[in-house]
Amino acid sequence: MKNIIFYTLIVLFLLSCKKEKPEFEIRRSYHTFVIDGHLEECSFQMFTGVFETKCYRVTNESNNTFRLAIGDLKFDAYETGYRYTVRVLCEQKILNREPYQDETYSPQYIVLEVLKKEKL
């Protein structure tokens, strides 16, 4: 009888515990991008200075053209000289708290499938 009361109290205690939100969530969305056939030189301002890198020239489904650094788009099958139409997964970290000083998270893009590949 004591065991039943003990386990009942433990279960009631665990059910009454307040569940806190996790520190961050990952928001996922899917997009179709057209990736140009050559990489561009680009620079990004970071906390400690300006960094030079290579970027993809990308057009999204809304016809907006922008540049994505190689580190922000995971595309292992890319070859210079081809224009790609690809389906992409975008993962964005969303904080459920106030960010620390200079804490930012850029979205990460992963190519899921190549829809079209055309020679330029």
Rank of each mutant, 00 (worst) to 15 (best):
K2S: 14
N3I: 14
N3S: 14
I4Q: 07
I4V: 12
I5E: 05
F6G: 10
I10C: 12
F13D: 00
F13C: 05
L14W: 04
S16K: 08
S16A: 13
K18L: 02
K19P: 00
K21M: 14
E23L: 15
E23P: 01
E23Q: 13
F24N: 05
I26N: 07
R27M: 09
T32W: 12
I35Q: 03
D36I: 03
D36R: 13
C42H: 00
F44I: 15
M46R: 08
T48P: 14
G49D: 06
G49T: 04
F51L: 12
K54C: 07
R57Q: 07
V58A: 09
T59D: 08
N60D: 14
E61W: 05
N63P: 03
N63H: 09
A69R: 07
G71F: 08
K74W: 11
K74G: 10
F75D: 01
D76M: 11
D76V: 12
A77D: 15
A77M: 14
Y78T: 05
T80E: 11
T80A: 02
G81E: 05
G81I: 11
G81S: 03
Y84C: 10
Y84V: 08
Y84E: 10
T85C: 09
T85A: 11
V88W: 06
L89C: 11
L89W: 03
I94F: 03
N96K: 07
N96F: 04
R97W: 11
P99Y: 15
Y100T: 07
D102Q: 09
E103G: 06
T104G: 10
S106I: 06
P107D: 03
Q108C: 00
Q108I: 05
Q108L: 05
Y109V: 04
I110W: 02
V111K: 01
L112H: 00
E113V: 09
E113H: 06
V114F: 01
L115Q: 02
K116H: 15
K116Q: 13
K119S: 01
